[in-house]
Computed example of a mutant assay.
Amino acid sequence: MIAPTLKVLSRAPDNNQLSNNTIKPYLLLQNAGTTPIPYNTITLRYWLTTENTIPLLFQKNYVAIGQGNLYLRYVPLSPARQGATGYIEYSFNAGAGSLAPNGDSGPLEVQTSKQDYSNFVQSDDYSYINNNSYTLNARITAYQNGVIFYGTEPMASGSTRAAAPEAGSQLTVKVLGNPVVGSSAEIEISGVMGQVVQVKLIDMQGKTVYAHSIKDARSVERVNLPLGNAQGLLLLDVSTTTQRQLVKLLRP
């Protein structure tokens, strides 16, 4: 049975160091339901870009349910997706027991480095958000018995299109000022003249903050996005029928 009441939270203890030879995707699971969830039915995916094909090394700094009960591996993707050349998979053995109703797993604090200790660049990692305390993160996906029940997987990369766009027709999205200061963000969209363009601004809980549709795009379109009360890292999703761009937007 799928457990929709289970949530995934993450925190980044790296003080916004977006380029480092070690990354620390610290996770925590919550069970808001009334039924225990066996850990060995759960897998998690932290989606990231590794910049190259160097093998990854894992270290378990602190695992509240026992280090021996947590397994880690890196799974490369072919083809890559938007913001991900692969994912780190978290899985558990039966010795971990069950996640109690209205309880949490305690911290799953792990760190990852490359075998040659070259740098990661986290700014384009799909699952990365910069927050010092545990916060719901809908871009980390969770599965029970192989069926997704939390989060949203990254979209397929634009490089998987059947045909390459003509010269000068590549979708380009620019945020005019990032981090954003003020109550709105201004973006510039080009390369989609005559097409229908969908613009969405999404927060880290997967909620749409603002949506806008352009019916017949000009060569360059400027769109003002009201931010409301949204703060922190936001995901800007701009798409046509054939192309898509995802851009991280920061509002301190």
Rank of each mutant, 00 (worst) to 15 (best):
K174T: 06
T5L: 10
L171N: 01
K114E: 06
G146F: 08
T112F: 01
S10N: 00
L250R: 06
V181C: 06
R218W: 10
R73E: 15
P101W: 08
P154H: 00
D116H: 04
M155S: 11
P226A: 08
Y117A: 15
V75D: 14
D203R: 03
G232H: 03
G146L: 08
L176K: 14
G68P: 01
G158L: 12
L201W: 02
Y71L: 14
L18V: 09
T160G: 02
A64F: 07
A167S: 14
N93S: 02
L99N: 03
M204H: 13
P107G: 01
S184C: 11
A96E: 02
D104I: 05
K200A: 15
D104A: 10
Y126K: 08
G194I: 08
K60S: 07
V199Y: 10
P79L: 09
I65G: 00
N21S: 12
I189F: 00
S91G: 13
A84Q: 07
G86D: 02
A167C: 09
V175E: 01
S19P: 03
P107V: 03
G103I: 07
L56N: 07
L236K: 05
A32T: 06
V192I: 11
H212N: 15
Q231F: 13
G103N: 04
N69I: 09
N16G: 12
I202A: 01
N21E: 10
A211T: 15
Q144D: 09
F149Y: 10
A185Q: 01
T152D: 07
V197G: 02
N132T: 12
S157E: 03
L28M: 15
Q30P: 02
P252D: 14
I148C: 05
G103W: 03
N16P: 00
N93K: 05
G191P: 05
I187G: 03
T53S: 13
N31C: 10
V173Q: 03
T49L: 06
P226N: 05
P252R: 14
N21K: 09
T22M: 13
L27I: 09
G151E: 02
A138Y: 06
G158H: 12
L56Y: 02
G177P: 01
L250S: 07
G86L: 06
L136M: 14
I23M: 06
T53F: 04
A64E: 10
P55R: 11
T135G: 03
L136H: 07
V223C: 00
A211F: 10
N40F: 06
I2V: 14
L48F: 01
Q111A: 13
G68E: 13
L249T: 00
G103Y: 05
G146C: 11
R11I: 06
N15V: 02
L235Q: 05
N61T: 05
L72F: 04
M155L: 14
S157Q: 06
P13S: 04
T152K: 05
G168R: 07
T172A: 13
G182C: 08
R45S: 06
N178E: 01
T41W: 08
Y71S: 15
S10Q: 08
S157R: 00
L27M: 11
K200W: 06
R222M: 13
L234T: 04
A12R: 12
P13K: 05
T5I: 01
Q144V: 09
A211W: 11
L99D: 02
L108C: 02
S19N: 11
E109K: 04
V199E: 10
I140W: 04
K24I: 07
Q111I: 04
Q59V: 13
R244D: 04
